[in-house]
Amino acid sequence: MGIEEKLPAGILLTSVEKLSNWARKSSFWGATFGLACCAIEMMAAGGPHYDLGRWGMEVFRASPRQADLMIVAGRVSQKMAPVVRQIYDQMPEPRSVISMGVCASSGGMFNNYAIVQGVDHIVPVDIYLPGCPPRPEMLIDAILKMREKVMATPLGPNGRKMLEARKAAGQMPIVAPGAMPSSYRVDKVRRAEWTQAVKDGREEQLRIENWMKLQPHLREGGK
């Protein structure tokens, strides 16, 4: 990205990294890539009710050269696939992709000749967002997870070296950035619970247990 990348590994680089990532995550500019029904939900997320402007994202850049987040919203047909790739290639680094909806993530309900079974066959995807179509709130959740991921990105070759060093020394955060469900992330206690569960390798179990605790007929421990 420039002179920042040439900084030697150390505290200066980590501070610059944090600053640069914070700037990136706070001002995602989406590329308009609405294809089908999910595009309407994306537009609704940009509308006044579920306001994406709260996170600086109400503006969707028509030109991919000025965008850094491509939300592939909708089913990608065989005819459209080269266009998706071309738009992705035209986006400058650093760029991210959210595949919104099941059709973009995996082909969805259209398991047939005409639809590409998952846009990850064409472009690398950072966040998969299921739903048919996902509610605007789900899209916002995906964007928030994307922000977490961006916050943890290394800056330049020195940054990547530092990341490798951290990995080798075993200092990586227990929960990968963007991997904690939002309902756990909001509360310190639950966050600690989840982190512990990931350490033990039983986060699915934790989810199931907590869900069961909420069911009225199972509250007494099941009958």
Binding site: G107, N111, N112, Y113
Partner: peptide, 22 residues
């Protein structure tokens, strides 16, 4: 509807649906 260089006529009954295992 199909790309210009597509082979086959999809809506015919002997054309497979073309899905993949999930």
């Amino acid at each position: 509807l199909m790309p210009d260089d597509w082979e086959g006529h999809p809506q015919r009954k002997d054309y497979p649906l073309g899905g993949v295992a999930v």
